[in-house]
């Protein structure tokens, strides 16, 4: 009994110390004495509005989603059960959906960043006539939602599409046989339509910080343009490219509107919306949302921590 009392007393004094510490910390913010305290109060005041929005609109709803996804009942958050996650792991259908998401986003990321490097190179290094206009034109699609990107692909590659009909004229085959807009390749191109401008934006930021003197030195020492790019430019922009790959991959995983118009490949985001549309299975949708959040969070954190990635915007 004595030890128990001693324990609780020690715990009590520790608690009192903690409360005291917390109250001085709060006190120094509410009623600052030193300039350092005042600065701290300013920082807290400046961050408070964002923190409030993040807590109310971001953190609390996400916690609710996690709670329903591990709930023992379907429409109320009670108890703890991992049935929804069990479904995701064991059902081969969901594994297929996850695989679709990963290859589609991964493939389009590599293609988009691959195209964005020469675009950024040309825009930042060459003195092209009408460069401002070109920058505006390349940036314009950033503000287009995925549904419009999908429509753009229908205009190019659909049954009525420009490219489709040109190909039909050249080969003599009917246009409907050649239309690829509503197919996996069409979807691939539609993803690239959304992602190339974003990757270009990031890489232009990287190119703007390049050290031109080193390139000029290499050129004047007789290096060909390719060798200059390979051994002088590329090592400098590699962190930027890694950063662009991480951010573009996140964009690719998040694409949804495009898939509503071109519903040929079922990916994670589309499946989430289908869970809600057919039978309102909020538990599985919640588990999918949680899995998505954890995956992108881990992927971004690890990517930024263990690669040389630089994200400069």
């Amino acid at each position: 009994m004595a030890t128990l009392g001693e324990h609780s007393e020690r715990a009590g004094s520790r608690l009192r110390a903690a409360v005291h510490l917390a109250s001085t910390a709060v006190g120094s913010i509410v009623d600052p004495v030193t300039e350092r305290d005042r600065t701290r109060r300013r920082i807290v005041a400046l961050c408070a509005p964002f923190a409030t929005l993040l807590a109310v609109a971001g953190a609390y709803p996400l916690v609710e989603v996690v709670r329903i996804s591990v709930s023992a009942e379907q429409y109320r958050s009670v108890g703890f059960a991992l049935e929804a996650y069990g479904t995701l792991v064991t059902d081969p259908y969901y594994r297929g959906v996850a695989f679709n998401s990963l290859w589609l986003a991964g493939g389009t990321t590599l293609a988009s960043v691959g195209v964005a490097v020469p675009i950024a190179h040309a825009l930042e290094k060459y003195d092209l006539p009408g460069e401002d206009v070109l920058v505006t034109l390349v940036s314009f699609p950033i503000s287009l939602p995925g549904i419009v990107a999908a429509f753009m692909i229908l205009v190019l590659l659909g049954n009525n599409g420009l490219v489709t009909n040109l190909a039909a004229l050249l080969t003599g085959r009917p246009a409907t046989d050649l239309a690829i807009a509503v197919s996996a390749p069409g979807l691939f191109v539609a993803f690239c339509y959304s992602m190339i401008p974003r990757a270009t934006l990031i890489l232009r930021g990287t190119y703007a910080e390049l050290d031109h003197a080193a390139e000029e030195a290499a050129q004047s020492l007789g290096a060909t343009p390719w060798r200059t790019f390979r051994y002088v430019t590329l090592p400098q922009i590699r962190p930027g490219i890694t950063g662009a790959v991480i951010l573009t991959f996140r964009t690719g995983l998040a694409i949804f509107g495009t898939l509503i118009v071109i519903q040929t490949v079922v990916v994670w985001t589309l499946q989430i919306s289908r869970e809600l549309a057919t039978g309102y299975d909020i538990q599985v949708a919640g588990a999918m949302a949680t899995a998505y959040f954890l995956f992108t969070f881990a992927f971004t954190a690890l990517g930024l921590r263990y690669t040389d990635a630089e994200v400069g915007l």
Binding site: Y60, P61, E64, R250, L253, A254, I272, G286
Partner: peptide, 22 residues
């Protein structure tokens, strides 16, 4: 603080599900 404020927290679909629930 910088990282949290410039990285999108979740995409629209996920936030939509979260809003419907909360």
């Amino acid at each position: 603080v910088n990282a949290i404020s410039v990285l999108p927290l979740v995409p629209g679909v996920i936030l939509g599900v979260a809003f419907l629930r909360a």
